Simulated assay, not measured.
Amino acid sequence: MRALIQLALSGLLGLTASSVAAQTLQQTRHVVLAINNVDRYGPHLADAANRSLYMFTADQQATGNMPAVSRCNDACAEVWPPVITTQPVRTETGMDDKLIGTVQRPDGSTQLTFGGWPVYYYLRDQKVGYVGGQGVNEFGGLWYLLSPSGEPMKSIPKQ
């Protein structure tokens, strides 16, 4: 009965399980970057909790005088929550701090960039260490893991 009431309240408030989970991921404010090393994919960018991080080919990568632009908003950002930070980002040893940056999102929040690419979680990565978003074609572009050098890992096949 309690679960039914909670579900009904969520429906009344316009919340879905995915939007609640996306909001939880978006509430990450202090980010520590790490390198995850899954056998099939090799070393790729993750957070300190070992959650894989992705880039979106429809985004604009920051290069030279061109700023990064995130094009994943609304429904896209529910499935691919942006990595939001309000504090300086820390890294594990062996990572180049010069690859870290930020981009202002339309809602005013600050999203992490790495290698010039806006960075996202994947809501369907249900467990720590999952890499289910690799090669997904969704919301007008492809999603890839980022290498420790900030490059999209395009040659790695979809899981």
Rank of each mutant, 00 (worst) to 15 (best):
T63N: 11
G64C: 00
A62R: 10
M66C: 13
F56T: 02
V20W: 06
R51Q: 08
Q27G: 13
Y54M: 03
M66D: 14
S18K: 11
I5Q: 10
V20M: 08
A58G: 09
N36G: 07
T28V: 12
L33Q: 01
G42C: 03
Y41F: 14
I35T: 13
N36A: 06
N65Q: 15
D59V: 05
S10G: 15
A8Q: 09
A8Y: 08
S18E: 12
A48R: 11
H44S: 07
V32G: 08
T28R: 12
L4E: 04
N36H: 04
S19P: 09
G11T: 09
Y54E: 06
N65H: 10
I35E: 12
L25Y: 08
T63R: 14
A48H: 12
T28K: 11
H44W: 06
T28G: 11
A8F: 11
A3T: 04
G11C: 05
M66A: 15
V31N: 03
Q61Y: 13
R2P: 04
Q6G: 01
H30M: 03
V38A: 09
S10M: 14
A48Q: 06
N37F: 03
L13A: 14
L7M: 02
T28Y: 04
Q23M: 04
Q23C: 01
Y54L: 08
T24V: 00
S52M: 07
I35R: 06
A48V: 07
R2W: 12
Y54R: 08
R51G: 02
P43F: 02
L53K: 06
T63E: 12
M55C: 15
A49V: 00
Q61C: 13
I35K: 05
I5W: 03
R40T: 10
M55H: 13
V38I: 11
Q27N: 14
H44Q: 06
N37Y: 01
L45D: 03
R2Q: 10
A62N: 04
I35N: 08
T63S: 14
L7Q: 00
R2A: 10
G14F: 01
A46L: 02
N50P: 01
A17I: 15
S10P: 12
I35D: 04
D39F: 09
L9M: 14
I5R: 06
Y41K: 05
Q61N: 12
Q6T: 00
S18T: 10
G11H: 07
L9G: 07
N36K: 01
I35P: 10
L45P: 05
V38K: 06
A22W: 11
R2K: 10
L33Y: 01
R40S: 08
Q23G: 10
V20L: 13
R51I: 04
L13H: 05
A34C: 01
A21V: 10
A49P: 01
A58Q: 01
V38D: 14
L25Q: 08
D47G: 13
